[in-house]
Design a protein around this nucleic acid. Structure first.
Lengths: 67, 67
DNA sequence: TTATTAAGTTATAAATATATAACATTAGGA
DNA sequence: TCCTAATGTTATATATTTATAACTTAATAA
C-alpha cells in the first residue's frame, strides 16, 4: 500500500489560503482537502492537476507516492 | 464536463508496447488502459503517475483536461 | 470566560473508477 | 483467404473517492 505525501498544506500556508478557499477554487469540499492533506486517499488526476494549477507547480512537486 | 486527452497510445507506439504489457507493468487490467486511452474516465493520481514513470515523462506531458 | 474561525474527524450516502468476463472488430502475416 | 494477436466495447460487480452533515478540537480575540 503506497502512501501519499503532499505539500498542499505548505503551499497553502505560503499563500495564506484556507482549506475552504482552496476547496472553492477547485470545486470540492473543505473536508476533501483536509483528508487529502492528511493522506487519507489517492485523489483523481483531475483534482490533483487542478490543485497544482492553483499553485502553479507540476503535479510531481505537489504529490509523491512512497513505497 | 472536462474531457481528458492523453498521449498514452503515442508513447506506447513509440516504444512498441502493447496495452497488455503496460497494464501489467503498472498492475491494472488491459481494458483499463484501453478505456483510459479512449478518454472514458478520469484516472487516479497514482495510476497516472505510474504510467508517466514508465515513459519517463511528466504527468502533464501525458494527460491534459480540455474545457 | 465566551465567541469565533479554521481544521480534524467520523459515519453514511452517492458517485465514479476499476475489475472481471465475454464477445466483437480490426489489422497483419501466413 | 484464414488465423491470430491486439484492441474495442459492453454489462455487471466491486472498490474507492468524494459529498454531506454533524460533532470535536485548537487557537485566538473580545
Amino acid at each position: 500500500m503506497p502512501k501519499l505525501i503532499t505539500k498542499i498544506k505548505e503551499y497553502r500556508a505560503k499563500t495564506n489560503m484556507k482549506q475552504e478557499e482552496l476547496a472553492q477554487l477547485i470545486g470540492v469540499r473543505r473536508e476533501t482537502i483536509g483528508h487529502l492533506e492528511n493522506g487519507k486517499y489517492n485523489p483523481s488526476l483531475k483534482m490533483a492537476m487542478d490543485i497544482a494549477k492553483v499553485f502553479m507547480v507540476p503535479v510531481e512537486e505537489l504529490f509523491q507516492f512512497i513505497d
